[in-house]
Structures are given as structure tokens and as C-alpha cells.
Design a protein around this nucleic acid. Structure first.
Lengths: 355, 355
DNA sequence: TTGTAGGCGTTATCAG
DNA sequence: CTGATAACGCCTACAA
């Protein structure tokens, strides 16, 4: 099968010089053929191509890049965890727009550890990536800012950089949450609970704000007992849901500000046979294959589109240079109401407690 | 904030020569300091370090690699889809063992398209990756074999290469499936159905074989009506389950040979209120957060460990060279019986039809 | 249409 | 301990 090169010997990769010798032409002629430049006689070109094939020559991108002075065709993507489908989907979107432009993507996971993020950043810069997309860990902003100052092209995804002025792509966390809560208000609900994740995470903050926005706009004070945060696992979410249901004045509707929370919420409602009594809206942060089927609505974030947008932004930045002003893109998290099974709020038996 | 370099100007990255000039030493001295080589007087070293910091110098990995002649610290990982949690988990495991050795990983998705796989392979080789881990697409084997012949270090994950002799890491697909079916047989089940995915996919073939192995060993002929393949989505799995339940002689147990199939299976059983009547065992190909809770058993594949093993194999191959014999590693897919709720087989009302 | 000279940023070799 | 000088593989000029 191995058509040439005998396979076993892994001596040294053939170079253009080798090809030139084999074909009996000059180095430059080989270069021209390899790069598809014009001004090469057909028969010479053919001879060169034959030698390339015979020797199994592959151009060395590093040397090419070194000689051309330009930045290489390598990008970096620093994510929290490659095994997390959300970040995986972002990676997918990123590839999708950058590969066709000839850019390869180096990926690395940080587990949200700023130190690992720093190490990765360092390695990527040494590898001379043309630019970096980063789903930043909480607490690593200082280093990112330094890198930004040194002229590295950086695009943040899913989160803003603390007091920084760099390109960023996020979902419409705040607005979409507000829409969701508004929808419940429109349906007549007044006691709406919110289950949110770690409040130090930027997107969690935004979503909570959206919840509060809607309540404020409706002139309803937020009941502290209905706003539960630090709900980081589906188990915690289930527990929190149970607690809400056993509340003196239980909510008539619950919003889950994240997909994992949604899973726990639905499970708990199911266990309490309350899934047809308590209206609920959950965030779906990734294509979970329709496993999240809340009766009222779902807020669907498009992780892949986040990745695509980040890629486009980065490519644009590479064209414009560091002088162009920072851009900010918000990808709409779709609000999908389900009209089939809207749970009506309970009849108002008692006077509204709000002023 | 920007401690130096004034930020905005993105003129040219400072080189060792620049540092040497700034520090008033020779190029080589800078090189020594950067690489932590000995034989440098402390004060000179300090002066150099100061200049490095002042100029914001970063070593150029390309040039370094070019000068050293050796292969770079870059690896490739060709996956089917970065957004698929299985491949994401593999990527994660791969990183986990290679990053500490100073290797960065370039990832790319193929969507199981051999052509895209070829393009990626090409790009990776040009980028001078030291080695490649590939979750190969069906039909791209010829190109991979060629690359292998040219001396590229390649490790296959989750699938064998057709008639190839390269390092490979897989799960114990066949053995684990056999164990699962055996378990049902031990419980007294005789009519055991199997839902499998696309039979051209290697792992699907293996799992089906494991199913048949167990039946054969028990002296039970495989009922063609109980072996359903091409079940590629959870929807199809649900439909197939329904069909099985409406069968003249429905199975008393069902095995789902893949996680997506398992989701459809469980959903359908639930819908038919048969989840406590039909014993079932499902594959869990990734940490799905315990969403798959079959009553009898689960077969859990460890995708991250697949990635780790692939990484270790690749690093080893890079040490040994291409001459060392190909290795094959099987990562055990854990069989986890649930004793809490084993569904007993029905009493045998009719004589066993098998000879 | 073809070939020659010089340099990209780094490391290795060999003198001081 | 320190420093010139020659590679490494390729590309951009500039000749022939």
C-alpha cells in the first residue's frame, strides 16, 4: 500500500531542497510549484510534482510562517472544560467559521482555574497563535488584560472581561430572562421564584438581573424567599424546588436559570406530582435533544452560534488590527413559549400583598 | 495597568536580538537565560530578565522548533464532532495527559466525513504536529494508512483502522455487551431484544457481536425479530421499543447498545407504563449525570479514560519511534448491576422453544 | 521562465 | 562564563 518512502524509516522529513535535487531544478522552482505560483513551464512543474509525490514532501508551516514574517494560521480557544457540551458546542461553531479560512484551532481546558488559564495563554502566545477566543475563568482578568495590552487579539465568549475593552460575544442573558418572567407575569402569576447558579459567574448575575428587572417593571417587590442562588447542581435544584413547594406561600411559577437547574427542577416537580400545578420556565444552554420539556416555555441558548460569532469577530479583528474599537455581540437566547399546556395561575383568593 | 510596551502599537514582537541589544549582552546569553541553561553569571541573568520583562519578549516556538530540528510540541486530535459530549470527553482526557508534557492539542471536527478528515490530516501534518489522535470516520482509512506509512505517529480511538497496524484505544464493547446479556440470561430471561446503531460503525458491530456471543454461549438462537439495528436516534429507539412491545411474543428484556438509544427506550417504556415489566440494560457512553437509570443494569463507558489512554499511547509512540510494534488498549466499560430493582422474568407458562 | 542571495528567530557548535 | 557564526526550511527580493 505505502506507495513510496518505504515507510519504516523515519529519518528526516524531505525538504524543498531535497525535492529540488531529486527533480534537478532549483529551490525556488519547487517553491513556486508548491505555492501554485505562475511562471513555471508545464514540464518542469510536472517533474517537480512527481518528485514531491515520490519523496512524500510536505511543506513546513513553521518555516513558512517564519520566513513570511506574518502570524501563523493558528488560533487558540481556551475553554472551561472540553467535556462540557456547552463549551464543546462553542468550539464547534468556532471551527466552523475559522477552518474554511485556513485556521486551525488549539484548544485547552482550564476547569475555571485562573492559573491554568494563565499557563495556557502563555503556551498559546509562544505558539504564535494569530488570536485567541477565551471563555474566561473568574479571576484571570488581569493576565488577559496584560496580553491584550501586548497586542494579542482576544475575543471573550460567554462573559465580559472585568473593566476591559475587548471583543466579546454573549447570549442575551438578561433580556431573555426578563422576557421569560414577563411572560409569566402576563399569564397572571405573581409569586414567581427564581433558581440561579453561582452569583459570581457573570451570566448568572445577568440572568438574575433580568428576573429582577421584570419584577421591578411590574411593580412587584422581589420576595427574598423566592430568589434562590448558588444552585449549582441538579440535585441542589431539586432540593431547592422541594423547599419552595413546602413554603408557607409557595410560588405559582418557577424559573430555572440554567439547564442543569432545569433538570433538577423538573425532576422534583415530577416527584411531587406538581408538574401540572406549578408553571415553570427553564433555560436550555445547549441542544439537549429536547429533554427539557417544561409546559410553559423554554429559553434556548445557541452555544454553537456563540462560537461562530466569536470566530467571525476574531477573524475581523485580525484584519482590522488592534486599533479598531472593541465590538460586542449578543446572540439571542430564543424564548419559546409552549401554548399547548400553559398552566393557569391560581384564582386570587387573597388580596395582593404588594402596595 | 499595562506595565510596559504602551499597548496600542502592535509593531513587531521583540526578539532575542532586541533583548540582547537592550541588555547589552550577546544573543546567546539571552538564549541561555530564556532556556534556563547554566553558566550564566547571576547579574547578567538578572539584567537579561529585566529586559525580557521590559520589552515583553516571548519566545517564538516556530523558530525554536526550526532550529532544534525536532518535532514541535503540538498534537492533533481529529474528532467527529466537538459538540458531541463523547468526543469532548475524549478531548478532555487527551489534554489531561499531554498538557503536563508541554504538548498543545489542535482539534478539528469531521462530522464523520472522510474528505474533511483528509483535509484536516493534511493541515495537521503541515503544522508539524508531533502526532495525531483520530476518532476516524468510516471510509477514510486509506489516507490514514498512507500517513502512517510516511511515519506520522497516529493513535486511533474508539475504532480500529481497517487492516491497519497502528496504536488503538477502544472500550470493551464486545465483552461488556456480552456480560450485560449474560446477566439477563442469569436472571432467567430468554427473550432478550437488542437495539443497536448503524452497523457500519465499528463499535456498533462489536456490541452486536457481544449480544450474539452471549446468546450463542447459552445455546439460544438469535431471534431476528429481536435484533433491531440502524437505531440512530432516540426517536427511532422509542419507535423500535413500541414495535417490540406490540410484538406477538414480546421480549422480557431489552438491551440498548448506545446512550441515545437508551433514552428512547426508557422513554417508550415509560409511555407504555412497561418500565417495571420489561428488564432493560442501557449503554451510557458518557457521564450523562445519572439520567439513565435503568432498573437492571447500566454499561458505562469512560470516554475521558479513552482520551487519557490515547494520550499516553501517543506520547509513548513519540518516544519509541515508528519501529515499535503497534499497541492496543481496551478500556473497560463498567457493568453496573442495580440490585435494588431487578425485574424478574415471567414464569415460564409455555415450553421453551429452543431445542 | 529560471536561479541566486539574504534573512526570518532560534538553537548548536566552537572559539575566546 | 561569554560570544561570534553557522545552520534550520522557507520566502521575498532581485538578478540572469
Amino acid at each position: 500500500v505505502g506507495q513510496v518512502g518505504d515507510g519504516s524509516r523515519s529519518a528526516r522529513r524531505p525538504t524543498m531542497t531535497d525535492v529540488a535535487a531529486h527533480a534537478g531544478v532549483s529551490l525556488k522552482t519547487v517553491s513556486r510549484v508548491v505555492n501554485g505560483e505562475p511562471h513555471v513551464s508545464p514540464d518542469l512543474a510536472e517533474r517537480v510534482r512527481a518528485s514531491i509525490h515520490a519523496l512524500g514532501f510536505r511543506r513546513d508551516a513553521s518555516a513558512r510562517q517564519l520566513a513570511m514574517g506574518a502570524a501563523g494560521r493558528l488560533l487558540g480557544y481556551i475553554q472551561v472544560d472540553a467535556a462540557n457540551p456547552f463549551f464543546g458546542a462553542v468550539a464547534r461553531g468556532l471551527e466552523e467559521v475559522t477552518l474554511p479560512h485556513g485556521f486551525l484551532v488549539i484548544t485547552g481546558s482550564t476547569d475555571a482555574d485562573p492559573e491554568r488559564e494563565g499557563v495556557l495563554l502563555d503556551a498559546l502566545v509562544e505558539a504564535r497563535v494569530a488570536g485567541i477566543v477565551v471563555a474566561a475563568a473568574e479571576g484571570g482578568d488581569e493576565i488577559l488584560r496584560q496580553e491584550l495590552d501586548h497586542g494579542t487579539a482576544i475575543v471573550c465568549v460567554d462573559r465580559l472581561l472585568d473593566g476591559a475593552t475587548c471583543d466579546v460575544v454573549t447570549s442575551t442573558n438578561r433580556a431573555s430572562t426578563r422576557t421569560a418572567v414577563q411572560h409569566l407575569l402576563d399569564l397572571g402569576h405573581r409569586r414567581i421564584a427564581y433558581l440561579g447558579g453561582t452569583p459570581t459567574v457573570w451570566s448568572a448575575q445577568e440572568r438574575r438581573q433580568g428576573y429582577l428587572d421584570a419584577l421591578t417593571a411590574a411593580g412587584i417587590g422581589a420576595d427574598p424567599g423566592l430568589l434562590i442562588e448558588h444552585v449549582d447542581t441538579s440535585t441542589l435544584a431539586a432540593a431547592a424546588t422541594t423547599r419552595l413547594l413546602e413554603h408557607d406561600a409557595p410560588p405559582t411559577a418557577i424559573v430555572a436559570g440554567q439547564d442543569r437547574i432545569g433538570i433538577g427542577l423538573i425532576e422534583a416537580l415530577h416527584r411531587h406530582a406538581a408538574q401540572h400545578e406549578v408553571a415553570h420556565i427553564v433555560f436550555d444552554d445547549l441542544p439537549l435533544g429536547g429533554q427539557l420539556e417544561p409546559p410553559v416555555a423554554v429559553v434556548r441558548q445557541d452555544a454553537t452560534e456563540l462560537g461562530r460569532a466569536a470566530g467571525r469577530l476574531l477573524l475581523q479583528r485580525l484584519d482590522d488590527g488592534t486599533t479598531a474599537p472593541a465590538r460586542r455581540i449578543e446572540i439571542p437566547a430564543a424564548f419559546e413559549p409552549r401554548r399547548s399546556a400553559s398552566i393557569p395561575p391560581p384564582a386570587i383568593d387573597e388580596p395582593d400583598r404588594s402596595p
